[in-house]
Design a protein around this nucleic acid. Structure first.
Lengths: 224, 224
DNA sequence: TCAGTTGCGGAGTGATTCGCTCCGCAACGA
DNA sequence: TCGTTGCGGAGCGAATCACTCCGCAACTGA
């Protein structure tokens, strides 16, 4: 394909970046059934190049997960660094929705979780808990909302069914409109977190196991 | 399997209902890659029984889509029948999230759309537009929110990534907790629709083509 | 009691798609 | 010009797909 200019390490690094971002896109679009061929094609490289850098599909996903966890932690810390509790919370939520582990959910349980990953996740969870506590203290966050509510809401907003389908059908001309529409929806949904005279939330606060459960290695097999 | 009691038409009808609800569940869980074997297994019948009732996989999905569209229209009309504009809107949204065409999005474009389906969709869209207009008139709905915003938000909330994964991993013991957590998230997100002193929505209102686009038959094939 | 009928479950089938390997080749340095 | 390096993608065995077909159980009429 594009073979020109200088070479060696430069193109290697570029291919690696292209592979990672392509993997994230394809994973978001095709879910658990994302194929290595699709990832390589979207990155504009051959499958051979993919397998030279990652020995297996799982290894690529593992690396992807690590990166997402780092971004997740960074987003939370950036939010904590902001003065306004509400702005900080929303900053974290927005960043997490865009790059978060939400799109990785389909492959959760298909590879081993390294110690580094669990540690990053725990540090992130602590930061988010602090973010939530601070917002509660300031009275800007709806009183009943817990950190798990927030995380699950973020996960719910992470996927973009509209954009996925647009991409699958190749309707690139509507992509900008879809992006805009998504921003609006996210804004609406996150505004529901504000402290307001609205009604109460149904049921009781969910436990953390709903969030940690999925990363346990899967042995049982099919459902039913 | 369960073969007892009286018989004939009774069991036939029961199997049909089981098939339809199983198809919806599997479609929601596995997306576009839902297999007939999985649907039949979840319904507790053999694949033979499935193919005796529906000549092809597409025919089953078509029927499923028709039913969802009917429920969609019914939900909108029920909402219009309620006196309180806000209550009516939320009633529609809740019902549509639960049974709506959102979970059918993955298979959109894979089968022909009958006239009956387009007519039902149009009548539903008109009813929703009226629902939105009424809520705006009463001043209970955030001013900038359009019918498309509402529909897209509903679609976003239709999927339940958490429950999907729970089901895939066979963790039935957490199912109730996940259901409860989902109710909370939906309540939060829908509360963002309320007229409130919150900020403005980003960008401009999305056009209807974002919603109708997907049902066009797909000829191009893969993306990129 | 016993053919005849009906709808059932699921093994079997060819086609397709998967993750992954391997090889010929193009772009460099010397 | 030759050796080296990393590339793209054809090809492979395994797995999975939508769909067919058949032996059998549950029921009916005589």
């Amino acid at each position: 394909m594009t073979r020109s200019r200088s070479w060696r390490s430069e193109e290697v690094a570029r291919n690696d970046r292209a592979l990672l971002s392509a993997a994230r896109e394809v994973l978001a679009a095709d879910g658990a059934h994302a194929s290595v061929a699709a990832i390589a094609a979207r990155a504009g490289v051959g499958v051979g190049s993919l397998y030279r850098r990652y020995r297996t599909k799982q290894e690529l996903f593992q690396r992807l997960c690590l990166i997402a966890l780092r971004e997740y932690l960074d987003a939370a810390n950036e939010g904590l660094a902001m003065d306004d509790p509400w702005e900080g919370l929303i900053h974290y939520a927005m960043a997490s929705i865009r790059s978060g582990p939400g799109s990785l959910a389909p492959v959760a349980g298909t590879f081993d979780v390294t110690e580094e990953m669990t540690e990053l996740a725990e540090r992130g969870d602590r930061a988010v808990a602090e973010l939530v506590a601070r917002a509660h203290m300031a009275g800007v966050l709806r009183a009943e909302v817990t950190a798990v509510d927030l995380e699950l809401l973020i996960e719910q907003l992470s996927k973009s069914p509209l954009q996925e389908q647009l991409q699958r059908q190749g309707r690139t001309e509507l992509y900008d409109a879809a992006l805009n529409a998504r921003e609006r929806i996210i804004t609406i949904a996150l505004d529901g977190l504000r402290a307001a005279p609205a009604g109460v939330l149904p049921g009781q606060a969910p436990g953390y196991e709903l969030f940690t459960m999925r990363w346990a290695p899967q042995e049982g097999g099919a459902a039913e």
